[in-house]
Write a protein that binds this DNA or RNA. Sequence first.
RNA 1: GUCCCGGUAGCUCAGUUGGAUAGAGCAGCUGACUUCUAAUCAGCAGGUCACAGGUUCGAAUCCUGUCCGGGAUGCCA
Length: 678
Amino acid sequence: MSFARTKPLATSLRRDRWRDRSMNVLAQLKQAFHSALQGMVADPTPYLELIRPSQDAKFGDYQANCAMPLAKELGQKPRDIAQGIVERLDVSQWCDTPEIAGPGFINLRLRDEWIAQALGTVFADAQLGIVPTAEPKTVVVDYSSPNVAKPMHVGHIRSTVIGDSISRVLRFLGHRVVSDNHLGDWGTQFGMIIYGYKHFRNDEAYQVAPVAELARLYRLVRAVIDYHAAVLGVPAQEAALAKLVEQRTVAEQLAASTDAAEAKKGAADLKRLGSRIEASEEGLRATREKIALTEDSPEALARAQAHPNIATSVLDETAALHAGDAENRKLWEEFLPYCREDIQRVYKRLNIEFDEELGESFYQPWLGEVVEEFQAKGLARESDGAQCVFLDGFDTPMIIRKRDGAFLYATTDLATIRYRMKQWQPDAILYVVDHRQGEHFHKLFAAARAWGYDHVDLRHVAFGTVMGSDGRPFKTRDGDTVGLEGLLDRAVEKARSVVDENLEKSKDLVFSGEERQRIANVVGIGSLKYADLSQNRASDYTFSYDKMLELKGNTAPYLLYPYARVNGIFAKGDIDTEAFRATTPTISLDTPEERQLALKLLQFENALLDVTVDYLPNLLANYLYDLTSSFGQFYEKCKVLEAETETAKQTRLALCDVMRRTVRQGLELLGIEVVERM
RNA sequence: GUCCCGGUAGCUCAGUUGGAUAGAGCAGCUGACUUCUAAUCAGCAGGUCACAGGUUCGAAUCCUGUCCGGGAUGCCA
């Protein structure tokens, strides 16, 4: 059975697209079509979505594809309908006479004078012609959410960067955004550092640098636990491998069969088993290396042998903390600020801030109430000793209280929804969390709706896994997850060598080592973020330093370069930017490159609105890439400082300046900084 | 077993929610620096959009089935 659908935020945002705005051409065209279609069809709104930028310049700048679907509804020929629409349509303010082509496409070509005038308006506006939405929504964006006390790793980059960008775009468009870092500050990792603190601490180190000492304790306890788990896991891994090898033997026989169908199946099995065996062998090798890591060090081995039951002891410490044990509670309160401080270092490097950082522990006092309320409303009942919420359409229930009485993340998530609704009355709550938790969120949202929160758009903004070049989840050679800080260091380091290499080539410009490092920092971090944001979040993402730092293609360096180039033009021409912005340049678009660039610049707002429909920052990245490509062509063909006429020079300076401001603003909305020269 | 993603050029990926001849970058080949920064630009080549049906004026996109890959799947998060 299906649930009553809440009104998605995107629907109301989409309506913004054709609101009356002086600079948004598409919005204006939609309005003109709305008038023209009125009387022809009951509700013109859905057909307005069929007006879009043309794919090919020979079809004009925009095309309206509404005549074909209308043909069916009205029972007439599509070309006749197109003709009818055109006769009722008044777009003369913006366009040349519309043309009908093919089965009934209506092609629209903007008048050059209109584009020029619109560009002038954008040039004169500090906000690039973008006005805040008339229908501001309140949106909670839940992202990043690392476990504190545990080093952040590569898995956190996507949530952090995507969530940050979505927050920035929504806020820029005038929505009220509450960005909330739902920290894991109440889990087993605290049991680990509490255990570590009790058994392995170095008091002096803790006094001098508590954050570093706690991190050391975490790694140390983790290593001991991993060692025991590895030793215990080897037989099972070996057995699994043996089974696969056995299956391979069967497949080999099948492949040799005289029956064509059987042989084909055998060959397919062989191929599949081959890669599985490879993966299995590699896993086993990694496990053995992990064991060796401890056994090769007498000190580590002695420690491991002295703590054989460390895993359960850690769980006991965690349970004691949750049960209110005074000592553990005191330690937790002491450690938490240090752990928070530690992760802030990474956020600072990434230039990311949150409005709220309400961790799991914040909701802990209300978990009992939540369960009771679910029971009282008949939404939850006992099953096998656990409190379960059974939901239509799901095979398994959502468990909100374990047999042993402990709560789960589902419980916390429910309490969190209740708090957020009460505190901010949001229209939408976005969870920027990897796609593997999809089913959890489906259940959570269904439970929340049953609970009464059915007027909020709860949405799982899912993203894929970060993969290595081998096509498997991105790991270090030892099979560990890759630390986030090391990733940033390496990106900056690689960027530095790219910077050095390229600046050697420019003779006239002198860059100090300090400036080079600053550029490397912006380029390195920016590339790391952009590589992620420029890809559709739904797909898995193959991590590659070389690719993200490419100078051509859809990369951060490619987008940063035109910005610096325009600065170079202004510097060379000795043109004061502020003074120029105070003027009203005469604009006349006389070359295809100028026209194309101007048109792209006018589409910035549409790119931002597109991002908000399905929360896809890559649509903004695509736009910026498109824009800078157009600039590249313009730059090649149109001399700015040595333009043939004064009007051409003013036009081109204006184009350059609006381009530079748009790129800067666009990158800022992706959380990426610019450099003045490079 | 069931459910959720995905399969587009040798590689990495886009593809504006069903529109006209499927696009970029890398890799390969060819050109363009005494010129506002060549961290660039122009060009060539590269495709059975996994496969088979279906829906309609029109399908990479929607539906059904098959194959392949990944993920989730009762007490972790």
